[in-house]
Design a protein around this nucleic acid. Sequence first.
DNA 1: CTAAGATAATTGGCTTGACCAGTTCAGTCA
DNA 2: TGACTGAACTGGTCAAGCCAATTATCTTAG
Lengths: 233, 233
Amino acid sequence: MNGSIKAAEPRRLYQQIADQIRTLINGGHFPAGARLPAERELAQQLGVSRPSLREALIALEIDGSVEIRMGSGIYVTAEPERRTWQTGSMGESPVELMEARAAVEGAVILAAAARVTPEGLKSLRQILDTMRVEIEAGRKPLDQDRLFHLTVATQSGNSVLAHIVGDLFDERHSPISAQIRTRFETPDTWHRALEEHEAIYAALEAHDPLLAQAMMHAHLEESKRRWMENEPR
Amino acid sequence: MNGSIKAAEPRRLYQQIADQIRTLINGGHFPAGARLPAERELAQQLGVSRPSLREALIALEIDGSVEIRMGSGIYVTAEPERRTWQTGSMGESPVELMEARAAVEGAVILAAAARVTPEGLKSLRQILDTMRVEIEAGRKPLDQDRLFHLTVATQSGNSVLAHIVGDLFDERHSPISAQIRTRFETPDTWHRALEEHEAIYAALEAHDPLLAQAMMHAHLEESKRRWMENEPR
DNA sequence: CTAAGATAATTGGCTTGACCAGTTCAGTCA
DNA sequence: TGACTGAACTGGTCAAGCCAATTATCTTAG
């Protein structure tokens, strides 16, 4: 009975559904303040079960896109002026995402380089070592990649910033579901990413904020390039 | 074997479950990296159904407390830091929030100063004029304040960054409504904030990124100070 | 005896179907 | 006319089951 979404591969279903609904909202199908179809109906329209739809709605509710009123309905959050930037004429979201990461992580690492502790360096060292092992074992060190950036952010000593870095890594801020998450990089590209991580680590170890920032910027710039090459789309 | 949760609270069940699990994690019952019981078992232990438990897990997954690995299990996120302000044990959140805003908005305004358009400057000019009117009418220009920061972020041309700035302003990164939103500043403090905004505007108009960044940092630093004075807590 | 491969549990992912509990609103009756 | 009521919404929750990915176990070939 399901036809629209499925594809059964990439991400959890509730995330796909949430992205799809977000797209409908941003696309104007459901203007701010509007009530969405009832859960049962919406689920059928999207070709998914109600529990899955509910999971997506909870995600949307948490990120504030939607308000759920028991017995009444599901409403698009009515924050005025919220979508002004939506017409942004510039690059597509993947590019924006990487730019945003460069801006945020570049700022974060300035503090991290100044505040990083020996324990923090030790953690990073271990993450990189594990990452190298994973790569040479032919596996994709996605977790280590994420953990590295998150740990660097943690070293800033600011949990809010660390949270944002994690969100950006997980693509939780991309407005229009861009799903770049495929990530079928080759061992070679992963190896280059590792070396860039190493450069960042070295700069942190030297407590050199500006160098660390430069290395982080270079890394994210390269990451963007690698992505864009692999995703002709 | 149940009866642990159920308490006729108005809050939705998945939120109660999520809170309970969060408490268990923070309480050390499930140390970082540990694997939680299987969904079926955990649901039974908590006295709820599996779908409800799943909804709670999605909430926990989104806020990063937990990581779900298909076919493997549910793991406590191995972030060795900062569950602090969530447990309310050490209220560092306002300071961290303002630091995060300084880092992010400081980075954003670098791009904004370079890319700002005449239309963007016009919008900002109008916002500041309105803000001045509101202040002198004895009202709190909360909307104008928010709009100013958001519009500056928009001028960076990056919707992801703009989104983050909005989230930070709305304190959406603070878990479980810590909401410091009281904000009963006096007309005088608002007037000082306005002048700081004016300084930022002037730097943007002059297309001077570093000056704009400095003014933004100064503004947020002052904001933090104003808050801390008014909120002895 | 060891290591590689096949197999059986175990676990999360998703669906179907059902019933309960607030909310809405139109039809009813004073 | 207007307050009331109850049916028809709506979201909230639960139960049981099957599928797919992962992991643990056992078998078997070397």
